[in-house]
Design a protein around this nucleic acid. Structure first.
Length: 545
RNA sequence: GCCCCCAUAGCUCAGGGGAUAGAGCAAAGGUUUCCUAAACCUUGUGUCGCAGGUUCGAAUCCUGCUGGGGGCGCCA
């Protein structure tokens, strides 16, 4: 099923031979779509733009789709879709099991690496963003037919486990019973201990060696820490409505056995060299090298990322690698991707993308932190929102606030603003959906079981709504291509606005005959798009509010 | 020192080289014998950080500045 603008593009292309750069019209009086191609062709053709536009329109065959094309301003070609074409688009959407989401012709395996909390630490606002954004991308990519492999790259390895295990043994704590908050407190205690007690520090270092060499007691405690942490993460995901499960866990330790192979590859190809005692990779254009293996023989986290790329490409067959990680890691990922290319771990037909997101700021515009200066936990943030609204609405508020702005920018966490049902918020979209659910419920109660087809689109409000509905598939495709969920948010907000105008101006249940059937079908289609669109954002579409 | 990101209405933010730069919030006023008023409508607001350049046309692309944030060899 081709989208209407792509059909129109083809028709114009057939006349002019170049991409017509069809765009949605900027204003209602300019029709539905516009092309500026005449303006650009005017110079090379040596004729006034309006004359070029006139000759294009003369040869353009779009009578089956549009009203008569109009030439406006300096030479814009404005196209207005016929009402029956819009009606058919909505009816197609209603008949489509995917509700207008175009299934990709080239399904591929896509890895989405997101959330990535640290073992024995509570999740913070940064993990919230990664979880929400990554989950949205996962849902969108899955919806268009890709095979998505979610990877939760938890921090489950490193020198901090020497401290943790040693402190647990000192305290006689049962690691299997720790909550995340308790584990974090234990870590803070261990860290203070490490700096104040030289003997403890020495034992902690030795404990890291025990862990790395597979000492059973050490490994057992380490595993208990992971298990209790994972339980804590899962509780947070369940509360957030995030899809991650234990199946998606692929922590740093997973790659331990791969690291020698990675190093062997890098050394064999001559990509890595020894410098100041460390094994490093220099890449042109980067002012500092990647540290693969530290002077002390330990591996840096870049090595783990290389191993992950290698595995995801070789074993999973991934063609697209997506990393949902904060913007401060941009340099790191640029370097890792460049090294992976150089080493051949990333073949030319595989793309790797860092979806870099900004910080969450407090109401004062400063870095979001508690009075004590520590990072705000995910749990306390959810609690704060649920003080203002019921859980599903509070969650919608948070997720929408996170997804509706450009990802790379910092955003201000303002609970009072995001739970409003007026304005560009998650609850506003939920409310639009609930109203449609109500209309359809009432219709059903009155004995009209199945809404019919859209057949009458006389009112401008009806046409605007139908036009927006016809664009749903294009918007989802844009998110797939750009990994920018705020485009979908903006679309759903526009749709809700058009729905409100329709709702005010076009009575549904009080109308009769074909008009009533047609409007009911519009309601149903809008409800479907809102429901599936919200689901792509990870937001629950409520039937009642 | 080098690199990356950001700068648009009082505030929070959209803006794909194209028409008079748009939403929401806030402010003021209005709309319920009518499908959810948790809504809708109306009204005002701009040196698009600054200066050049490319172009028929620049908030958008290029260069240089200014201001803010972040990063840059042995934490992850």
């Amino acid at each position: 099923m081709s989208s209407l603008p792509s059909l129109l593009s083809e028709r114009i292309h057939a006349v002019v031979g170049v991409d017509p750069e069809l765009r949605p019209a900027t204003k209602p009086q300019f029709g539905h779509y516009q092309s500026n191609v005449a303006l650009r062709l005017a110079k090379s053709e040596g004729r006034p733009p309006r004359a070029v536009a006139a000759s294009i329109v003369e040869r353009l065959e779009v009578g089956d789709l549009c009203e008569t094309p109009e030439i406006a301003g300096p030479g814009f070609i404005n196209l207005r879709l016929r009402a029956d074409v819009l009606a058919r688009a909505v009816n197609d959407l209603l008949a489509d099991p995917h509700s207008g989401i175009v299934q990709t012709g080239r399904p591929e395996t896509v890895v989405v690496d997101y959330s990535s909390p640290n073992v024995a630490k509570q999740m913070h606002v940064g993990h919230l963003r990664s979880s929400i954004i990554g989950d949205c991308l996962r849902r969108v990519l899955t919806a268009v037919g890709h095979r998505v492999v979610a990877q939760n790259h938890i921090g489950d390895w490193g020198t901090q486990f020497g401290l943790l295990v040693e402190q647990i043994l000192d305290d006689g704590t049962d690691a299997a019973t720790l909550t995340l908050a308790e584990a974090e407190a234990l870590y803070l205690r261990a860290n203070a201990h490490f700096h104040s007690d030289a003997a403890f520090a020495e034992r902690a270092r030795a404990r890291v060696v025990s862990l790395q060499s597979g000492d059973p007691e050490t490994l057992s405690i380490w595993q208990q820490l992971i298990d209790t942490s994972a339980a804590g993460f899962n509780a947070a995901y369940a509360r957030l409505g995030v899809l991650l499960t234990d199946e998606d866990l692929a922590g740093e330790s997973v790659y331990n056995d791969d690291l020698p192979g990675v190093v062997a590859d890098l050394e064999a190809s001559g990509v890595a060299v020894v410098d100041a005692g460390a094994l490093v990779v220099f890449v042109e254009g980067f002012n500092s090298p990647m540290i693969v293996r530290k002077r002390d023989g330990g591996f840096g986290y870049a090595a783990t990322d290389l191993a992950a790329i290698r595995r995801r490409v070789r074993e999973f067959g991934a063609k697209r690698l997506i990393y949902v990680v904060g913007a401060p890691q941009s340099f790191h990922f640029d370097l890792v991707f460049a090294v992976a290319r150089k080493a051949g771990f990333l073949p030319p037909d595989v793309v790797a993308e860092h979806v870099a997101f900004g910080q969450v700021l407090g109401a004062d515009g400063k870095k979001f932190s508690t009075r004590e200066g520590t990072a705000v936990t995910l749990t306390s943030l959810l609690d704060a929102a649920e003080e203002k609204a019921s859980a599903p609405i509070a969650l919608a508020a948070i997720k929408y606030a996170d997804l509706s702005n450009g990802l790379n920018k910092d955003y201000v966490f303002d609970v009072d603003r995001m739970v409003q049902t007026t304005g560009n918020t998650g609850p506003y979209l939920q409310y639009a959906h609930a109203r449609m659910a109500q209309v359809l419920r009432k219709s059903e109660a009155e004995g009209n079981a199945a809404p019919g087809d859209v057949s009458v689109l006389d009112e401008p409000a009806e046409q605007t709504l139908a036009l927006l509905l016809s664009r749903y598939g294009e918007i989802v495709d844009e998110v797939v291509a750009t990994l920018q969920p705020h485009r979908l948010c903006a679309y759903l907000y526009d749709l809700s606005g058009a729905l409100s105008v329709f709702y005010e101006q076009c009575p549904v249940l009080k109308s009769a005959g074909a008009v009533r059937e047609s409007r009911l079908a519009l309601c149903l289609a809008t409800k479907r798009v809102l429901a599936t669109g919200l689901d792509l954002l990870g937001i629950e579409a409520l039937d009642r509010m």
